[in-house]
Amino acid sequence: MTTSATSLDKRLILVDKTIAVHGNRRDALLEILHTAHNVYGFLDKKILLHISEKLRIPPSQVYGVATFYNYFKLKKPGSHSVTFCLGTACYVKGVEEILSALEKEFNVKRGETSSDGKLSLFVTRCVGACAMAPNVIVDDEMIGKATKEVVLERIRKILESERVEA
């Protein structure tokens, strides 16, 4: 417990450093959100409140900015993530069908994390690879011309291999 508390403080120091580098300027909010997101992996309410106080920006405004960008996650993501491109091309090419299939099989809704903390489903707008639509990103790997079968299989494998290791 103590170790996690110290490492948490270390991360906070990194955030505070960035804030100091920018002279506590309000217009550096986005930079600071990026740093906090990088070091924590997501932005929880505690860190948003901290930033709000340091930059003297009302909490609701900080929250508004953080949620404006799809990039920022406000909840701790699962150990694996699948991101679905919902841009026009991918939508037309049936990405929704793949998404629904995953939601059903792994019992997790878009934007959320499975109860065991293993899998998160995210949606995003146009990843810029429309020629390969539909695009699905599994962890850091992009799967172009994705099908329900391929994506489901990939995730089953990932989760299965973890179970074996454990």
Binding site: P58, S60, Q61, Y63, T67, F68
Partner: peptide, 26 residues
């Protein structure tokens, strides 16, 4: 709330069709 009362309790979260009024940190 921001300009007259001076507390900025309210704001908007997300964007586009998902925009919604929030109170503090939602």
């Amino acid at each position: 709330c921001d300009e007259i009362e001076g507390v900025h309790t309210l704001d908007i979260k997300r964007r586009g069709k998902d925009s919604m009024i929030i109170v503090d940190l939602d």
